[in-house]
Amino acid sequence: MPVLNLNRRNLLGRALALGAATTLTGCDFDDPSHPDVVDRVLNAMSHWNDEVQAALFNPHTLAPTFPASAITRPARFNAFYDIDKAPQVDLATWRLGLTGRIGNKQPWRIAQLRALPQESQITRLICVEGWRVVGQWSGVRLGDFLRRINADTKARYVSFQCADGYFESIDMESALHPQTILALDFLGAPLTAPFGAPLRLRIPTKLGYKNAKSIVALGVTNQFASGYWEKQGYNWFGGS
């Protein structure tokens, strides 16, 4: 993800170049907590693009899979912090907390998740920045897991809270996609801290930033929950 750039620059010249006849004092989400008129227009268009992507989403369309030879090595670390700042999670005390519209909210230990049927995939992760990597992930199908915990799969969103303060949410249709997994392993070994240990979302039908790492809580909700980057201006659906 890019380093967050919140510097306010004079946009007058650019605004004139655009022929925008509005009074632009600053725009482009440079201050997300104080959206101006341009931010509101861009947000409205982004919501419209969410709708278009939801309509375009076909639950039966699979993301391409790749042979093992296509796996990107070494794996590429990416987060909103440096690699040595990746959260160290103690597996002995780690639990996957469950919240919202879920029948059985008993927290899950990692061994319990490993005991479930595992799904392996070699898929491509496309970053919103434009680069892509191929990796192998395996873990529990999110759709299977949601049904197992008696979640309301008619709810609109599945949300994720992460050990590093990151948070994400996805639409239920994408959550139930067969390639959407709660990954435990990366490249045949348990996830390491920089790559989202002990549990991460792997969703090859969406852009990289939707793939929440080091998950500590999962929620099922009808309340729009946005996401870490989305709050700063990234498109929420983030479909691929």
Binding site: D28, F29, L42, N43, M45, G233
Partner: peptide, 18 residues
């Protein structure tokens, strides 16, 4: 460039495309 950072640029790009 327009948008100041990637998030802003994508928002402009996918608005203007319509």
């Amino acid at each position: 460039t327009i948008g100041q950072w990637l998030g802003g640029a994508i928002a402009w790009h996918l608005a203007a495309i319509w």
